[in-house]
Structures are given as structure tokens and as C-alpha cells.
Lab assay of single mutants.
Amino acid sequence: CHSECLGNCSQPDDPTKCVACRNFYLDGRCVETCPPPYYHFQDWRCVNFSFCQDLHHKCKNSRRQGCHQYVIHNNKCIPECPSGYTMNSSNLLCTPCLGPCPKVCHLLEGEKTIDSVTSAQELRGCTVINGSLIINIRGGNNLAAELEANLGLIEEISGYLKIRRSYALVSLSFFRKLRLIRGETLEIGNYSFYALDNQNLRQLWDWSKHNLTITQGKLFFHYNPKLCLSEIHKMEEVSGTKGRQERNDIALKTNGDQASCENELLKFSYIRTSFDKILLRWEPYWPPDFRDLLGFMLFYKEAPYQNVTEFDGQDACGSNSWTVVDIDPPLRSNDPKSQNHPGWLMRGLKPWTQYAIFVKTLVTFSDERRTYGAKSDIIYVQTDATNPSVPLDPISVSNSSSQIILKWKPPSDPNGNITHYLVFWERQAEDSELFELDYCLKGLKLPSRTWSPPFESEDSQKHNQSEYEDSAGECCSCPKTDSQILKELEESSFRKTFEDYLHNVVFVPRKT
């Protein structure tokens, strides 16, 4: 048989008469490798580009789960590009990614509803959504962080984005990388972005840091009482949809009607710091009717980097990364020049730590249904340095008659930039024990000054392991946590139920 035959053949030295091919099969003959313009397919066939392209389009058009959109890589027609490569849609070739590779997620039936953290986790790592997304989240724990972890990498949506009755959302900033909504599939009414009845939605994105392009379709905003109209108009300008909307697409009466839409800028007039305090004062603000001013709200939190936005980490279910302080308005003076500047002394802060701070007014709604208010920009203030805590785990070892090696770990709280350490030492008198000992005694162990690591005695271990207080009263049991108490109650309830079950099964009433 021919060298490319495997198993047997019907005619000697003829690659077209093989029972099976050793390498690849091409047009009725066995070959060692697939010549151009053919590609290896499933490690035994040679196919042309049209064959591989037909497989790709067949799966793409069917949208069946589990099928493969075949691509070409290293002269092979394979189910998908290997790690580190992405497909070129024009020629199906796998090309190296520039940075992290995109991950295209194809949605069944063309859309997916995100109504819980669990459903959001199914899209973790996706960068391109081939379909439409509907966000409908009523509640949950730590929602802002969970949504950002699972949806934060999405850069492109081919269909539309719909935010509907998501009472738990305060902001859409968890879509931190969303840059493009194509609108290839539109919501009824030709809408590519749809926001309806979101009672706590206050911000779409921080438009000073976020760009969003909507290729096709219109915007729809109705019944978002805490979303200011200025935020919607800003989205029109940034996304390129200005002029597409009709009169009733953006409701003037049901958007922002319960919001404090600040239209003035508060400026800080005085800032002073110490290692654990920050004193702030800002310019006074009074609405047209000074009785509408209820006070100020001061927001602050630790910020290692200057990239904080107002609604980071917030949701309507209680999660809030900001510390909020309510401040009463100052006494009002008739003389504008003698107006008191409101302020606040922030206490209990960490030394040498940068804080993000902003302040906003708290006002009631005027009778004319106009909203007044003022808010400052987010500023960054760093507390002063102070003395560091003591170095940890000092170790001293003498390696000769004239040297001592000293080692330690950095302090747990540096409280500033540590530039150097101060080492103090003092000579001590020799131990009298060394002169009084009889060095001729056998088995004498000389006193040693070398360091030995501390260890816990058996008594201390027994005390720590004991669940009861000892007789001397030195140790006591740790208080039980809520989960331990709940577990004990469940076990007790189970024992009672099981005992009742045994009584009912074992003891049967005697027939009379």
C-alpha cells in the first residue's frame, strides 16, 4: 500500500485506493498535508475557505447554543480562536489581540433580562453583547459592586439597553466600559436606550469621564423622579442622539420631579488639616426662599486615587461607600458681607490618608415646582503625618564578641513616609551569675543571650482551647457569634421535631 494509506488498500502504491488515510483526505486521495488554498479540518480532512465560511455563517444565523462559528488559524479551520487571539470578521482569520481579548457573548432569543446578581454573573467577562440587555433589578445585597464585577467589562451592545423598574439602582456607572450601543435591534418605538419607572436612579454616568455613542435609535425617559433633566440632556449631547427624540420621548413632568437638581456650584473657602482632623468651610448658599434650606450634607471617604465619582458603590438597598454628615444651616444675616460661612470639623480620621470630599445642599421643593440647590466639586484632601507606631517583631542576635545583629519589621501604621529608623542602645553591667558559677561542674549549661522565638506554653494553649472559665478566673470563653447562636437554635429545633416524629412513629394507638 501507499505510504499515506492506513489499515489496508485495494490497489498497491495508489493513494486513492486506501481504506483510511494516515494524515489527511483531499478529493478522494490521501495526502501528507493540505496544500494551499485548503485548510486542515478536524485533523483528517482538507477543506477550502468557502466550506469553513459556510459553517461560520450557519452557526451565526441559527443562534443555536453550542454550535461553533468556525475560524481560520495556522492553516486550520477550527471552532474558535485560541487564547490571546480574536477573529477578523472580513476573512475569519485569528489575529493577536492588542491588550485583553474581546469576548463576544451571543444571547438566546436576542435579549437577556438581568433581574438578579445570579443572572448578571452569566455575563461575567463579556466585552461584546450580541443582542439586547434588559435591566430589571428590584433589590439585593452589595448590588453596585456585584454588577460592576460582572457587567463592568461590557464595551458594546449590538441591540438596545433597557432599564425598567430597577428600584435598587442609583447610577449606571457599573457599566464602566460601555462605549457603544449599535441599535441594530430596537425596542418598540425605535428606541435604543429605554429608561422607565426607576424610582431611585439619580445618575446615568459621570459624563466628564465617560463617552457613549448610540449609532441608531432614540432615547426614552419616563417616570424617573430623581433623575434630573440636565442629566438626560447631557446624554443626548454626548451620545449623538440630540435631535432624534420626539416631543413625548422625554417626559418633562415625570423626570426629576422629586430630585434636588443642583444648578449652582458650592466653593470651599477654608481648608485646614491635622493628622486626624480636617476643618472645612464653604461659601454660604440661600435659595430664593431661605426657609427652603434644610441644611447641608457632607460626604467623605478614603480615596487612594483621584478618580472618585459621587455615586460609586451606591445602591438604593443601603450600600453606600460614603460617610454622610448632616449639618444645620448657619444663622442668616441681613448683611451679605457678614454672612457666616458654614463648615464642619471632621474628626477621627487616619493620618497621612487622602480623602475625597464634597458637600451639597438639602432643600425642600418650592411652590413653583422649581428645584434649587448647590453642590461642590469633589475635592481631595490629605491629612498630615504623625509619629508612626512601633516597629514590629524586633530580633537581636550576637554573632561574635563585638557585634549584635538587630532586625525588625516595619510598623503596622507608618502614618507617613518613613525615611529612617533611630536605634538606641545602652551598655549593661555583666551578670554576677557568670562569676559565681563553678565551671568545672559536669552538665553545666552556660547562660545564653542568643534570641529564641517566643512560644506559647501548654497552660496558655489549654486556656485558649477551654470553653469555660478556669477556677483562677484568668480566662473566659469568647462570646458566641450570631451565626453560632442561630445554628444552635436550628439544631435544637431539629432535635425537638425529630423526637416528636419518633414518638408518633414508635407509639401507635392500640386498636379498641
Rank of each mutant, 00 (worst) to 15 (best):
L161Q: 00
L201P: 00
F358W: 04
L169P: 11
M297Q: 03
L201Q: 01
C317T: 02
I114P: 00
A144N: 12
D393S: 12
T213P: 04
L172S: 03
R179D: 08
Q203K: 09
R370A: 05
P288D: 14
T383L: 02
L331T: 12
P394E: 02
R182Q: 07
V397T: 07
L362S: 15
F193G: 01
F175N: 00
T323E: 15
N399V: 07
K409F: 05
I154N: 01
R179Q: 10
S132Q: 09
R247M: 10
T254P: 08
Y167R: 06
G159C: 02
P329Y: 02
S158T: 12
L406S: 15
K301N: 15
P329I: 03
R176L: 08
Y355P: 00
Q216R: 06
I163Y: 00
K234H: 14
L331Y: 08
L362Q: 09
P388E: 01
S166W: 01
N399L: 10
L229M: 02
A356Y: 00
C261F: 01
D289F: 01
H106G: 03
Y167A: 11
T118M: 07
A251F: 07
I188Q: 08
N263C: 11
Y355L: 01
N198I: 01
R138L: 05
S319I: 15
Q314E: 02
S401R: 15
L219T: 05
I357L: 15
E122S: 06
K301M: 06
H106F: 04
E146A: 11
R164K: 00
G243P: 02
F174C: 13
S166M: 02
G183T: 01
W344G: 12
C261Q: 02
S376D: 00
K103L: 14
W207A: 05
D312N: 03
K360F: 10
S119K: 05
N320I: 03
L151A: 03
N255F: 09
N130Y: 03
C126F: 01
N211W: 09
K226S: 06
N130C: 02
L265Y: 07
A120G: 09
R291S: 10
A149F: 07
C228Y: 02
G139W: 03
P287W: 02
K234C: 13
F220S: 08
I188N: 02
Y300D: 00
A374P: 13
V397S: 09
T241H: 08
H233K: 15
F290I: 02
N142C: 09
T113R: 03
T254W: 13
D289W: 05
L212H: 02
A168V: 11
N387I: 07
S401K: 12
Q203L: 14
G189Y: 03
G318L: 15
T118F: 12
L229G: 02
Q216V: 14
Q306A: 06
W286Y: 06
N211R: 12
E236L: 12
F174T: 03
N150D: 07
I188T: 11
A374R: 05
I154Q: 00
P304S: 05
S402D: 14
F311Q: 12
K337T: 07
V170L: 09
K337N: 15
N190S: 09
L265T: 03
L123N: 01
N387D: 02
D328G: 11
N255P: 03
A303F: 08
W205K: 05
P342D: 09
D367F: 08
A195Q: 02
I379S: 03
R176S: 12
F193Y: 05
L180M: 11
P284A: 04
T127P: 07
A374E: 02
G183Y: 02
K209W: 05
I154V: 12
Q258S: 12
L186P: 04
W344S: 07
L212S: 01
F268C: 04
T353K: 14
L153W: 14
P388T: 01
H341K: 10
V238I: 15
L153I: 09
T353W: 04
L392C: 13
A259H: 13
T113K: 15
N141H: 05
L212D: 00
P329H: 04
R291E: 15
T241L: 09
R176K: 09
K226T: 10
H341G: 08
V128R: 11
R347S: 05
K103W: 12
I134S: 12
S338L: 08
I134R: 06
A149P: 09
S269V: 02
D289S: 09
N340F: 13
T273E: 07
T371D: 04
G183K: 01
L280V: 14
I404N: 04
H233L: 02
Q121K: 13
Y380H: 01
H341R: 08
T273P: 05
L293W: 12
E155D: 04
D289I: 02
Y194F: 14
F175V: 02
S132T: 09
P391R: 01
G159W: 01
V397P: 07
L180W: 15
P330E: 12
A144Y: 07
T127C: 10
Y160A: 03
L279Y: 14
L204C: 12
N200S: 07
G125I: 01
S376N: 01
E187P: 05
Y167Q: 04
K277F: 04
E231L: 13
S208H: 08
I134H: 03
E109L: 07
F174I: 12
E237N: 05
A356R: 01
K242G: 12
L180D: 14
T185N: 11
L107A: 09
K267G: 07
P304E: 15
F365G: 07
F175P: 00
S208L: 14
D315K: 03
S398R: 03
L151T: 03
F299Q: 11
A120S: 08
R370D: 13
L153K: 14
F268Q: 00
G125M: 08
G125T: 02
T127N: 12
F221Y: 13
